[in-house]
Write a protein that binds this DNA or RNA. Sequence first.
DNA 1: AGCTTTGCCTAACAAATGTTAGCCGGAACA
DNA 2: TGTTCCGGCTAACATTTGTTAGGCAAAGCT
Lengths: 193, 193
Amino acid sequence: MLAGTDRKREILSVSQRLFKEKGYSTTTVREIARELNIEPASLYSHVHSKEDILDQICFGMAEKLLLAIDEVNDIYFDAEGKLRMMVDNHVGILTDDLNAAIVFIKEWRHLSEPRLSEFVRLRKRYEQGLREIIQTGIDEHKFNEIDKKFGALTILSTVNGIIDWYKPEGNLKPKEIADSLYTFIWSGLRLDN
Amino acid sequence: MLAGTDRKREILSVSQRLFKEKGYSTTTVREIARELNIEPASLYSHVHSKEDILDQICFGMAEKLLLAIDEVNDIYFDAEGKLRMMVDNHVGILTDDLNAAIVFIKEWRHLSEPRLSEFVRLRKRYEQGLREIIQTGIDEHKFNEIDKKFGALTILSTVNGIIDWYKPEGNLKPKEIADSLYTFIWSGLRLDN
DNA sequence: AGCTTTGCCTAACAAATGTTAGCCGGAACA
DNA sequence: TGTTCCGGCTAACATTTGTTAGGCAAAGCT
């Protein structure tokens, strides 16, 4: 049984939306079932537990993002290219699956051990990738010698912030958002301001 | 009976910490009581409900921030002064009561109507104050003609992001953080980059 | 046709939840 | 000294929670 039965995808999709709207712990297994016109117990044919759903959403997003940032650090050599591509990828991935992104960013802490620690590990790896980009910029004398941790975390909250207001039907398209954010961040980090 | 009995402050303080650590809906009235060496039912001598606690935390922070930004827009006339003071105040208020700040930012949506709508109204008013600052900068030809909503929300997520990593015992002091963030934001918005 | 698997069902459970009712000792106040 | 009231207690409540056991019909495979 592979990961993506149709029914299972529906469950994940519905759960994402509900988790986004009400938060993970306020969302009920019964609510998820009701939206699928199914009895609560029937969910357990497709999913091991409620937390299993959260798990798949969170790690699904984490893997996409990690893959993307590793690629960036592999392909590009200068800080400008790296940062631009990173922001582009990051914004693209979040906006492409907004519900999942929101859950990923806001609800991961409801994971329980040992998956919680594993998730945190992945997140640290992503931050590490970001610091690599910043280091590149410093080496090129493009960035100030800022605290790299500060820089990475500030970039992260800046780009992640879009999930609070991005609307697919709005007039700002992901690509434009990424461009603006890139400019904002690049200027914010740049040497000689 | 005024707002701040000693016992009541203890309840708020303990609740803030627990809400921060586990989230509002995962935190139990019984847990709060246990930390105070009290029976769960005894809480209700000081507080109307669990949500009442969340209410006071969220609106307490909201009022502090609103007061601060109104002051900024009253006192200062140029964008630079306004922005600098705003970031300073914002970072100061968040770091001064970190637990409350985290709950304020992450748990407000568990408020129920009609308080939820009222809270959202206050938040919008704060964003409006921010847009006023941005407008000042545009009028002075210091900022790009950016989408003001985009700008306000990006600034907000950038400064709010600190709650995810700020540690009072760390080596970055609030004032330094505010300075770095100010520079970051100012440069990010500035015309001619 | 017989067998297996899939996907749902009904029924139920044990645990945990927020909250209320009613009591009671001691401090504060008259 | 008598009375009020504050801040805690015990006991219990009705719901809601995630989850399991066991069955059953239809589809798919051999």
